[in-house]
Each structure stands twice: as structure tokens, then as C-alpha cells.
């Protein structure tokens, strides 16, 4: 594991932030494109409808215009890819280079989650076996080591706009950060009979409260 880069906390990678940033660019563009095409189609229909067939124009090709248009589209694609790649680099690579304040081993199994805190020597479980919450410190990188005992599951915490598969036979590393609050979590890869019940709750609390809770090995009340 790399040593923490200087100013690690100030450059905390937030999946939520990256998602919202991209969302704020992609979605307005999409709405704009949709409305433009809708307007042009409706306008064309209104203008050109009910003319006699023999008045229909005969031009049917303009390759320079189409070529230019394709270039514009390629530029749009390049712009979107630039944004996506820089965000993806942060989420997938830079985040995992941050020094985590806590490491949680997540084992998914039909139909429960086991969250193990190796630094503190205990674990909590959620899903069909109960609803012990996953507690994490807010405002700090939290590393998750994901694996599965049986089939493919996916750890999804909608509030941080992130999910990742837990696949048997592998341990996958993701690093997330949270703001304080209580969030829902869900298995997001269909895993059989009681997939609907494979839920958990995340409590993101101030680091001091987390430390106190963790030192009690999860026996203290969830802060």
C-alpha cells in the first residue's frame, strides 16, 4: 500500500462528486439534443405535410454536410470521453492510492453481507440474518475488500453513486468516501431467491465516534 500523498484528505476522491459532475454535463446535453430533434421533426412535419406528392423535393444526398456533421459528433464524443476518462481515473485508480483510514473486508453470500473490520477484530452482518449496520468514518477514505462465497453479488450504496461486483474467487479493492449520514445499501446483482432481502444500512459518522464504536468491537450503540 502506498504511503499517503501529501494533502490526501483535502484531495479526497468522492464517487458521488464525480457522478454528479458528469451527470450535470451529460444530462443537460441529452435533454438539449432531444428537444432540438423533437422540435425539428415536429416543425418539418408541420411545414411539409399535405403537399401533393409531385411537389416533394428530389435532392437526397449531401455528403459534405454529413461529413462535417459526423466530425462535430466525433468532437462531442471526444469531449464526453475526456470527461469520463478523467473521472474514471480518479474513481478507479487515484482513489485506491489514497491511504485508507479503515479497511473493511466485505464478504457477500446468499443472502447476507459480512463486514469484517480486521484492524479491530470483529465483524457485523446484515441481510437475511439481521440488520447490523455497516459503520464507517465520514470524510476519510474507506477501503473495501470485496469477495463472495457463492454467486456474484454487487455492493451498491446509492448515496455514493457507486457499486462494485463481489465475485467468488477474487478479492476486489475499492475505496470510497462518505459524508455523515445514514444510507441504504443493496445487492445489485441478481443472486437468487431472496435477492430482494440482501440489504444493509451504512452509518457514516464522525471519525471519533467511529473509533469509539470500533474499539467496543461493535457492542456499543451505533453512533
Amino acid at each position: 500500500m502506498l504511503s499517503p500523498p501529501p494533502g490526501a484528505l483535502s484531495s479526497l476522491i468522492s464517487t458521488r462528486h464525480e457522478y454528479d459532475h458528469l451527470f450535470g454535463i451529460y444530462v443537460p446535453i441529452a435533454i438539449g439534443v432531444f428537444l432540438t430533434i423533437l422540435l425539428v421533426v415536429v416543425g418539418a412535419v408541420v411545414i411539409f405535410h399535405r403537399r401533393p406528392p409531385e411537389r416533394a423535393a428530389r435532392w437526397h444526398e449531401n455528403n459534405p454536410v454529413e461529413g462535417t456533421y459526423a466530425l462535430v459528433l466525433a468532437c462531442v464524443a471526444a469531449f464526453l470521453l475526456y470527461l469520463t476518462f478523467s473521472a474514471e481515473h480518479k474513481v478507479d485508480t487515484v482513489a485506491n492510492q489514497q491511504h485508507p483510514s479503515v479497511v473493511v473486508f466485505v464478504t457477500a453470500a446468499k443472502w447476507e453481507w459480512t463486514f469484517r473490520y480486521p484492524g479491530y477484530g470483529f465483524s457485523v452482518r446484515s441481510g437475511t440474518v439481521g440488520r447490523q449496520p455497516l459503520v464507517v468514518p465520514a470524510g476519510e477514505p474507506v477501503r473495501f475488500m470485496l469477495t463472495s462465497d457463492d454467486v456474484i453479488h454487487a455492493l451498491w450504496i446509492p448515496a455514493v453513486r457507486y457499486k462494485h461486483d463481489a465475485i467468488p474467487g477474487s478479492t476486489q479493492i475499492v475505496t470510497l468516501s462518505f459524508s455523515t449520514g445514514v444510507f441504504d445499501g443493496h445487492c445489485a446483482e441478481f443472486c437468487g431467491l431472496r435477492h430482494s432481502d440482501m440489504v444493509f444500512t451504512v452509518h457514516a459518522v464522525r471519525p471519533a465516534s467511529f473509533a469509539a464504536w470500533a474499539r467496543s468491537k461493535g457492542t456499543a450503540a451505533v453512533p
Binding site: A44, F48, Y69
Partner: peptide
Amino acid sequence: LVPAGIEYFDMIGTLIGGAIVL
């Protein structure tokens, strides 16, 4: 999105100047 955009361009190009029956 590039080929998809071309398709829509062609669809609109077909409408414009046509004699449309709905």
C-alpha cells in the same frame, strides 16, 4: 453516438422538403 447521429440526420433530411402524409 456518431453513427446514431447520422441516422437521425438522415431521417430529418428525408422529412425536409418532402410531401408528408401522416
